[in-house]
Structures are given as C-alpha cells and as structure tokens.
Amino acid sequence: MSEAINRQVDHSHMQVSDRVAIDIRNMNKWYGTFHVLRDIDLTVYQGERIVIAGPSGSGKSTLIRCINRLEEHQAGHISVDGVELTSDIKNIDKVRSEVGMVFQHFNLFPHLTVLENCTLAPIWVRKTPRREAEATAMHFLEKVKIPDQAHKYPGQLSGGQQQRVAIARSLCMQPKIMLFDEPTSALDPEMIKEVLDTMIQLAEEGMTMICVTHEMGFAQAVANRVIFMDQGQIVEQNTPSEFFNNPKSERTKLFLSQILGH
C-alpha cells in the first residue's frame, strides 16, 4: 500500500447527497471497430469520491473523458448536473464550465504564467472581471500552497507544483465536479504526496470527484466507492473496504494481487 497517505483524513464534510451529479446510462463507445466502452451504467451523486481502477487499456480514461465530451460517445446517455450531453454546442459548453479536469501530463499552457493559466478560463468563458479572477486565482493558489509561484512560467516549476497549478486552474472555474485522469502517474515518487494531499484536501471540503488512479492508498482513505474496469466494462464496484478486503470477481482479485504486490 502506498505510503503517500500518512495523515488522518477528516471525513466530517464528506457527505453524499441524493442529488444526482452524473448519470450515465447504457453508454457505448467505439474507436473504429474497437468497442472501448461497453454498456456503462453509472450514477454519481453529489459529494461522492469515486476512484476508478483497472489495467491499462481498460477504458477508464476514455470513460471520464466522455464525461466532459473530450471523447464522443456513440450510444446511450450521459447527463451531467441535469444537462444531457449531445452534439449541442451550448450543452457541451455548459458541462465543460462546470466540470474541472486534471490531466496526467498537466497540460498547463507554457506561454502563460501560473496566474494567467488560472485566470484564462474565468475571464474568457465566465466573463469574470480580471481583478476578481486574479483574486480567485490567488485564493486557490494559496490553497494548493504555491501562491509565491504565481508569476513564474510552468516550465520553471517541478512536476508536483505543475500538477497543483493544474488543479488550481480547474478550481478557478468553481466546478461542481472534478475529474482526475491519472494525476500522479507522470510524477516522481516524492512529488506524488504533495498532489495527493491537495486532492485529499479537496475531498475533505466535499467536492464531487472521479479519479482514475493507481494510488490505492488514496482510494482507501478518501473514496466512498471504488470501480474496477476491465475490457471496457465495469466489472465490480464497492466500498473501498469491501473492494480491497473482499473482492468478488476473479479479475479484481488478479488485478489487486498484481498492483498491491507482495
């Protein structure tokens, strides 16, 4: 189990409401003839922290990229906060401005300073006045503990710092849901902790989160549900304690034995 989590997680604000945040029904996706996502059914309630695990190529990243339409699904329904994702551009814009996303390779804009990275979308998408956007950005940069780097360029920061900026950048849009696509996979071991800490802090404040990650320690400490995917389908989902201690499916057992090791 990962040693990255070494503090007590405060569960007091993590409350799951009955309001549906994301509703996926019968969703299917193909790349050409390759069936990447098969009959996905998933309902995420507000305040849930979901970790999606699975071997590489199992479709986990594709699934969360469908949620903000970076990938287009071909059949079924996805609705986010009551907005159905169709090819209607207005709906797509609405969903994207309410869903934040953090990528494996950060994808910060290298030609803009950290602060400009954070204020870009609020100014141009939300039409926030610059001053206000900057104040918000500084607030979130303080939250991810790098306010002093605000005027540097992404290239001048370490990987961990960059990923925290990426998180702050998403938060500046005040999203209702955060998607994390393997946020720690491209980081050196000593930097994973600082990013996970930020994510835990976010969870403690009650953010709805879906994380694709291999950090099983994070899953145990924070998630209220773990989903295991293989070959484009959801194989098993359960509470973390059940999932880790009492896996039902053979595939899950095999995966856990490989990933948790000896």
């Binding site: 699904h73 059949a75 079924g76 329904h77 159905e84 169709t86 090819s87 209607d88 551009i89 797509i92």
Partner: peptide, 17 residues
C-alpha cells in the same frame, strides 16, 4: 444517443456540432 430522437430545429444548424 438521445439527441437523435429530438426533432430537428433550424437553430441546430448553428448550435449542433
């Protein structure tokens, strides 16, 4: 996908991908 069922509206010429 649901939108295929939705009836066609002229505004979709501009706002539908």
């Amino acid at each position: 996908s649901a939108s295929a069922h939705a009836s066609f509206r002229p505004s979709m010429l501009i706002y539908d991908r």
